[in-house]
Amino acid sequence: MENKPHYTWQFQRLSALFLVFTLPIFLMIFYSLKNATYQQIILRLQTPWVPVLISLIIMASLYHALLGIQVISRDYLSDLSASVVVTAVQMLTVGLMVLSLFSLTTIIMGP
């Protein structure tokens, strides 16, 4: 593993701070949709600020999760195993970010 600063700690805290303020809003939106029909959910997600907020929260959550897994891997796994786990999680994170953005864009354009 490279011996250079990763700024993991700082970005982990910044993403946490962002999520502390935005996650309750996301949960309120999510809970407000509990009895909604498919069409009502789509209409709600097409409100301009909602997909922006959801995409920011998902990006921040995925990034926060990636940094967390990196820290745990480096604490408990050898260099080689940690590299394998971190690379796999990085790929999964990018995949989930792309899938989320694709899904939200499709919803905004009208599925």
Binding site: L62, A65, I69, S100, S103, L104
Partner: peptide, 17 residues
């Protein structure tokens, strides 16, 4: 919660489909 994020992404994808 990492696994829950996969479920959330799946929920959004299902809505888009």
């Amino acid at each position: 919660l990492c696994f829950a994020l996969i479920g959330l992404t799946g929920w959004l994808f299902s809505l888009s489909q």
